[in-house]
């Protein structure tokens, strides 16, 4: 009886605990959003909102993909090439008899398979994730180059208009993905992500199928990454074998801004989403203020270091 009645408060207590680390980030994100809305009032029209969320969407997806791995104590340096792979598969298959549906299935399957293989190599061959995905980035990038040696391919205009036109379809898709993530987190495989990241040996001894959790997480992360590639192809109207390159660093930056730790077991998806939103808004704001692209590099570097260093300092002040 008591377990039933205490269930609801416990849920909110857990949520409060999870929100604690990211409240500062939320405040910063809202401040930047307000600044952006002030500079660009068109944000509140349907078209403006759609365009804004479309710029954010692929970054949000790769940030989620990277966060999944980092929470589990892994990392991927192959996010960029995998985005490219998704884009070139979409652009090549859509022109064939398989059509749009076939292309979507092929892209998602490619992500699942590539991610699954990476996960299997990391868990069964016991190779460090950072070096496996480093080597993997060459292999995946190579496959993308073979499929489509130079930018091209076909994306039907109807598909582009649906995903990247004047409708907030991308935002709707993101909401669906977040809801699905919440449901996944309630399954044993989802819960196992935190357990395997925090203490793999302890998790294994407590009955978590650590290897299966790892492979499933890598597969899921691959799926989100190629989905971002599909969207980028729809956005640009073609496939490009190197279009994903910046996403590797940006995915890590967004996750780190969102308070996800490299050591595993710590971090929240809402933090990563807020981190990716902050990065996306920042790039937009600097663009509107007329910063040269060079200053964006420098600002991005400083902000990433600041985002990690400042909580360390405030934590030290609080302790002393």
């Amino acid at each position: 009886m008591s377990t039933l009645s205490s269930r609801e408060p416990l849920f909110w207590a857990v949520q409060r605990q999870r929100n604690r680390g990211v409240i500062g980030l939320f405040v910063v994100v809202i401040a930047f959003l307000a600044l952006y809305a002030y500079l660009f009032p068109g944000l509140f029209t349907l078209g403006g909102f759609s365009k804004f969320t479309q710029n954010w969407f692929p970054l949000a997806l790769v940030a989620m993909a990277q966060t999944l791995l980092m929470m589990m104590g892994g990392i991927s340096l192959a996010i960029g090439p995998l985005v490219s792979l998704g884009a070139v598969i979409a652009a090549t298959v859509m022109g064939t008899a398989f059509g749009v549906t076939g292309a979507i299935v092929a892209v998602l399957l490619a992500g699942l398979v590539v991610g699954g293989i990476t996960g299997a190599i990391v868990s069964y061959l016991r190779l460090p994730a950072i070096i496996v995905t480093l080597a993997g980035s060459f292999i995946i990038g190579g496959i993308a180059l073979i499929i489509l040696p130079r930018p091209g391919g076909v994306i039907p205009a109807g598909f582009s208009d649906f995903l990247a036109g004047h409708t907030p379809a991308a935002f709707g898709l993101l909401v669906v993905i977040v809801i699905l993530w919440k449901l996944y987190l309630a399954t044993p495989l989802g819960l196992g992500i935190y357990a395997a990241g925090d203490n793999p040996i302890g998790a294994f001894r407590s009955g978590v199928a650590v290897n299966r959790v790892r492979i499933a997480t890598y597969a899921l992360s691959g799926l989100l990454t190629t989905l971002a590639g599909l969207f980028v192809a729809a956005q640009t109207g073609s496939g490009d074998p190197v279009i994903g390159t910046p996403f590797t660093l940006n995915s890590i930056a967004a996750a780190v801004l969102g308070g996800v730790s490299f050591l595993g077991g710590r971090g929240t998806m809402r933090g990563a989403l807020a981190g990716s939103l902050l990065l996306s808004v920042m790039i937009n704001v600097m663009f509107f203020l007329g910063f040269p692209p060079v200053a964006q590099y420098i600002a991005q570097g400083l902000i990433i270091v600041g985002a990690v260093a400042i909580p360390q300092f405030t934590g030290r002040w609080r302790r002393s």
Binding site: I121, L125, R126, L127, P128, I131, V132, L134, A135, G136, S137, F138, I139, I140, G141, G142, I143, A144, L145, I146, P149
Partner: peptide, 25 residues
């Protein structure tokens, strides 16, 4: 072709890692 060259480079590194880069059991 450049694509195959990348695949061979990554694949060979991965295979060589099996010999020397494995973590402890």
């Amino acid at each position: 072709s450049p694509g195959w060259r990348n695949i061979m480079f990554g694949g060979l590194i991965l295979i060589l890692l099996l010999l020397s880069g494995r973590e402890k059991q």
